[in-house]
């Protein structure tokens, strides 16, 4: 079991390395495509011209990806969560089984909270990744590259924020359903 928790934390750390990389590559590409799209619009008759303000939207999405922690914080505040995303030098997460052992004696709510705390990095990074891909999908829809619906992409983004805060939502739901005192 300890191995599983350790692995989950490693996965979370891997995703949190992957996210800035994706934001850098995605944001840079979107900014470039935006500038090239603006040029295309005036040079050839049917580039992104037929797609309204797609190049401008690409520049805004590129800027969003380059400031992705700010976007995540904005979304978290909007949904009323207190989680805070930031970017910085590496730090290793470590797992100790003592926290789980003491929590197991404190009843089901404490145990669930402790388990979700262990998975916190994984959930947070995975949720942020879902938000990232929701934005990419919506941009693809604007370009006409995929046939996803705006509503679905919006739900995907909001659900990403919910996954990010699974360690807040889980115990809150249990309390709301009156499953624990």
């Amino acid at each position: 079991m300890e191995g599983l928790f350790d692995f989950a934390q490693d996965l979370g750390a891997a995703l949190s390395w992957l996210l800035p990389f994706l934001c850098y590559v995605g944001g840079g590409c979107f900014l470039l495509s935006g500038v090239m799209g603006i040029f295309q619009r005036s040079s050839i008759s049917n580039g992104l011209l037929s797609k309204g303000v797609v190049p401008e939207m690409m520049i805004l999405v590129g800027a969003t990806f380059l400031s992705f922690p700010e976007f995540l914080n904005m979304g978290n505040r909007t949904l009323g969560f207190e989680g805070n995303a930031s970017i910085g030098a590496s730090s290793k997460v470590s797992f100790s089984s003592d926290a789980l052992l003491t929590a197991a004696q404190g009843g089901p709510l404490a145990a669930l909270t402790a388990i979700l705390n262990v998975f916190h990095v994984y959930f947070a990074a995975y949720g942020a990744l879902i938000v990232y891909f929701a934005i990419v999908r919506q941009m693809g829809r604007a370009k006409g590259a995929n046939n996803s619906s705006s509503g679905l992409n919006m739900v995907m983004g909001i659900a990403g924020f919910l996954v990010m805060n699974a360690d807040v939502l889980g115990p809150a739901l249990l309390k709301e359903l009156k499953l624990v005192q």
């Binding site: 800035p20 380059l66 992705f68 989680g83 930031s86 910085g88």
Partner: peptide
């Protein structure tokens, strides 16, 4: 704010 993803190797962190 200035872009936080600048191309340097960084890790995203999630505090509570």
């Amino acid at each position: 704010t200035a872009p936080s993803v600048t191309g340097e190797q960084q890790q995203m962190k999630f505090d509570k």
